[in-house]
């Protein structure tokens, strides 16, 4: 278990992380969100023992990271921001080096190497030096390095940044499959990624925690959560839609002619709306239910 208490980090007079407290338990896959410069990477650097907190502490299984650094680092797999790697080494040499330094015995090392090479589809670039790799491949090498020792704690700073859509999907599946009974913290700027991969979302802005809950709870904060949007084939009287029980507000998009009905908090309006449409024979072409617009929520929470 990771336990963060009143964690702060200042650079000079600038406060990058401000009094952050949270716990992460086995099974948690935390999506760490926040605008640029929010302090995500700085927090991760403190979780992994790279930076010393200005105040507060990080404990892993009850031990303070800054006291038992090496011992705790054994359990952590970490992908630093930008996936730094020794550029002059080949992919194979690099992964070999990481496995060696992590103290993996020969058999275990070979098994680990084979596995990550397969999982991240690195076979074709094994003998290529890292400086000549494309950005996406570099990121994949960084990921491979982080998971090679099958760590109990995975901390990944923007793991899917720079990956093509197929690889993004692939890596998300990989993270999901790896995360059984583990503690995973990933930072990302892709909000859907949190819904797709994580079971917990945490948003920070200006170093302060703004939201901590499930991705669903995050979506529910959206005005669009369970909102019903319809497209009429020709103009019809729609004023009655506002009278439907549970409908809080209505918005008509002048350009597209789409009508959006917003539910009152906690209400599901799809049933009553479809009933109304049937009853009054409204000429509806299309109809869909929104799952909540994360961008709106994100903006609302962080600004």
């Amino acid at each position: 278990m990771i336990s963060v208490k009143n964690l702060s980090k200042s650079f000079g007079s600038f406060v990058a992380v401000n009094d952050l407290s949270f716990d992460v338990n086995p099974g948690d896959i935390v999506g760490f969100l926040g605008p640029n410069g929010a302090g995500k990477s700085t927090t991760m650097k403190m979780l992994t023992g790279f930076l010393t907190p200005t105040s507060g502490y990080v404990r892993i299984d009850g031990r303070r990271v800054n006291k038992h650094t090496t011992r705790l680092q054994k359990q952590i797999g970490y992908l630093p921001e930008g996936a730094p790697a020794y550029e002059e080494m080949t992919v194979y040499q690099f992964l070999h080096f990481i496995a060696d330094v992590r103290g993996m015995a020969k058999k275990e090392k070979m098994a680990g190497l084979t596995q990550v090479i397969e999982q991240l589809e690195l076979y074709d670039v094994l003998d290529q030096s890292i400086e000549t790799l494309s950005k996406g491949f570099k990121r994949r090498v960084g990921l491979a390095q982080a998971i090679i020792h099958n760590p109990q704690i995975l901390i990944l700073d923007e793991p899917t940044d720079g990956l093509d859509p197929n690889q993004k999907q692939h890596v998300r599946n990989l993270i999901t499959s790896l995360s059984k009974d583990k503690l995973v913290i990933i930072s990302t700027h892709i909000l859907e990624e949190v819904s797709a991969v994580c079971n917990r979302a945490m948003i920070i802005a200006d170093g302060v925690k703004k939201f901590d809950g499930t991705p669903l709870q995050l979506q529910q904060q959206s005005r669009y959560y369970q909102a019903v949007t319809l497209k009429l084939s020709y103009a019809a009287d729609i004023t009655g839609l506002l009278e439907i029980e549970g409908v809080d507000d209505m918005h008509v998009d002048k350009k597209t002619g789409e009508v959006t009905l917003f539910p009152a908090t906690g209400q599901f309006i799809l049933g009553p709306v479809t009933e109304y449409i049937h009853h009054y024979k409204l000429p509806v072409d299309r109809l869909h239910v929104d799952q909540g617009r994360l961008e709106d929520v994100f903006m609302q929470i962080t600004s």
């Binding site: 650097k45 023992g49 090496t70 011992r71 680092q73 630093p80 730094p84 790697a85 992590r102 103290g103």
Partner: peptide, 14 residues
């Protein structure tokens, strides 16, 4: 410069 210090110092080494 290249940021590998972060990689190196988060490996279990002193």
């Amino acid at each position: 410069r290249s940021g590998t210090i972060e990689l190196l110092m988060t490996l279990p080494i002193t």
